[in-house]
Amino acid sequence: MNAPVSGPAGRVWRALTLPMRVVAPIASVIGRGFSGDFWVDTVRTTTAGVEPGPDVGSESGVAEPGEPGAVGSGAVGSGAVGSDAVGPDAVDSDRSASGGRASAERASAGSAPETHDHEEAQPPVEGSGPVNHRRYRVHISDSQVRPAELSDLFRRSPNRFSPTSFATFDPDPGPDGLTAGDEITVRLPGPWDGPVVVGATEPTGLRFETLQGHMEAGWIEFRTRNEDGLLVFEIESVARSGDAAFDALYHPGKIAKLVQTEMWVRVLESAVDISGGRMQGRPMVETDIHEGARQ
């Protein structure tokens, strides 16, 4: 049965299931400890405000489940993709070395490329705390769909990909799917919701930009592509926390980062299921925290 998402029925449903939705992401993370479905998160922190150093970095650690963030590319689908890591929370000091130096610069500067012209837009510069550039990626073998088809499925029905036990896209898009300028809210079981505007769509990608009231200030992109005969589904975001309270939950508290990672990794896992293929390796998360951009 599909839970109601939009309108009064959706509001009633969310109110009634609030306790379960609050617990759901943590229960899901704990469940990974039993199932072995860990993700890999490589975390690098830079203190420079502009450019992470080129030093050789190595990250390793124990998986713990989670966190999110993001940086990006210019147009949707053209992003420089970086490297990665597993499990959750391998925290290290360090610098970004691989892909997307220009992206890192943008992230540090707190600016998003091609921001959609929306009067309620909440770009990174309006946020609080460091800029978080995060990339989540999964490699899919034996996919039954092509990259553009998988992107189209996401654009038409994001709730098929979302862990609706605790996060839903409200409202469900119309028959034509999400198009540039559409406003949609990611409903979460907390004091913040996630209103976004669709900033751009391309055959193999889609970008959301945050609006006032969102827990974060920035943007996030969803992209698909072929790579060495595999289908790659990738999510990339560049954002600051929307306010100091959320930043406290995100960085020192880490709970917001954990829930964010759980949510987007679940989206990656759903993409694998929907593609009809098999996951190759583990979901990879790469997090660059640009402390120098802290306000």
């Binding site: 400890g33 490589t42 190595s58 390793s60 998986a63 890591a85 391998a90 390796g281």
Partner: peptide, 11 residues
């Protein structure tokens, strides 16, 4: 990147 259950190395 090498993964081993909850452990990993990324270098």
């Amino acid at each position: 990147v090498a993964t081993f259950g909850p452990l990993h190395v990324s270098v």
